[in-house]
Write a protein that binds this DNA or RNA. Sequence first.
DNA 1: ATAAAGAGTGAATCAATATTCATTTTTTGT
DNA 2: ACAAAAAATGAATATTGATTCACTCTTTAT
Lengths: 213, 213
Amino acid sequence: MAYRETEKMRLRKAGIRQRIFDCAYHRVSQGGFRNASINLVAEDAGVATGSVYRHFESKAELFAEVFREATQIELDKVESALTGQEPALVRLERAIRQFAERALRGPVMAWSLIAEPVDPLVEEERLNYRRSYAEFFERVILEGIEAGTLPPQDAHLSATCLVGALAESLVGPLSPQQQGPVQMPPVGDQSRQKVLIEPIIDFCMQGVSGQRR
Amino acid sequence: MAYRETEKMRLRKAGIRQRIFDCAYHRVSQGGFRNASINLVAEDAGVATGSVYRHFESKAELFAEVFREATQIELDKVESALTGQEPALVRLERAIRQFAERALRGPVMAWSLIAEPVDPLVEEERLNYRRSYAEFFERVILEGIEAGTLPPQDAHLSATCLVGALAESLVGPLSPQQQGPVQMPPVGDQSRQKVLIEPIIDFCMQGVSGQRR
DNA sequence: ATAAAGAGTGAATCAATATTCATTTTTTGT
DNA sequence: ACAAAAAATGAATATTGATTCACTCTTTAT
């Protein structure tokens, strides 16, 4: 024998894989999944088209991974916003406000994650993550019910409704049609954001608590 | 000249167009847009593939029309459920309950209309119709605010949240994955439906009214 | 009956990328 | 330096239905 994979090679391959992944991620964050073909990603990464397939099973796998990475970041933020000693309602409000703010700050990626048409495999990830969001919300709602700060309710359904209300109310403002193909102004100033976000929070908090704010 | 379109011909063409449309509609209602190729629709309708194009601009146009027809029926039902002399909240509840019940009764079509991945042109129709639903809800919310039976709020946002909460909470139960490819039991008995629908209504009514139910 | 015009046909073509794979280049151990 | 092994390449191929269009069949008015 003459060739055996060495540590150096392993590192180089990992680096290339990472570069391909990063370029795919970047493309999506700039122009959505629609603008991210394998050829373009390969070009960005400075490798041949076929090389992408040395590192990823298929296009769908690559972009499912991109989707997971991007969404997990948001999910982590939501989770940590939901964590704390405050009453459940306060934590829910913090999480929802933060999610919406971040979405409006990075509208292209947010739209891709929330609403862009995608491969079935990626769509599956989307459904999984929506369920994950709902599960986090559900847990906090249950805590609130137990602590007596929230009224008894079907926590699972309430959580699902939260996710839906949040997504739907953001889809309009985030959609490329609304934003124009290239969004020059970063979606809107703080006051514009506030006008959008506060009513969402009002609705969601009332839905969960049955209490006027 | 020798040939000029006669009334008889006009009628026959209209009939064929209608038959193609009906077959497309039927295919969607049975197996969603995914199972409705032009070839199959043509076969169902007993015409050649190419003939479909004598009557419809493109596949996307045909199915956009199917989408409109199917959704308009639901929209009309919602509109009439929203109409009446009762307080706004009562009418909203009636409309939402009816929408959800109908969706669960015809889960394949409902899923296609609410969540199935579709052509961009059809997706556009979906967005339009979601906006239409929201507009109807918004009008009623505004009436409620004016009449003093609902608290002041951003009616547009509240309406959008209603649409989102409703859609999201139905997507799970309606999804083919949940249902299995062929849903033998018609989705669930009345009690199952009640368990699903009542919490949705609780959340939505509380979101709009800020009142515990 | 005839021929002009339109309608109907369905096999062939197209389109747009994802994917492959025969070939070339690089790496490694002797 | 050599050759085995693997990695990289990118032009060629595959895929999957939508769409076309040259041809045939019908309808109509004379």
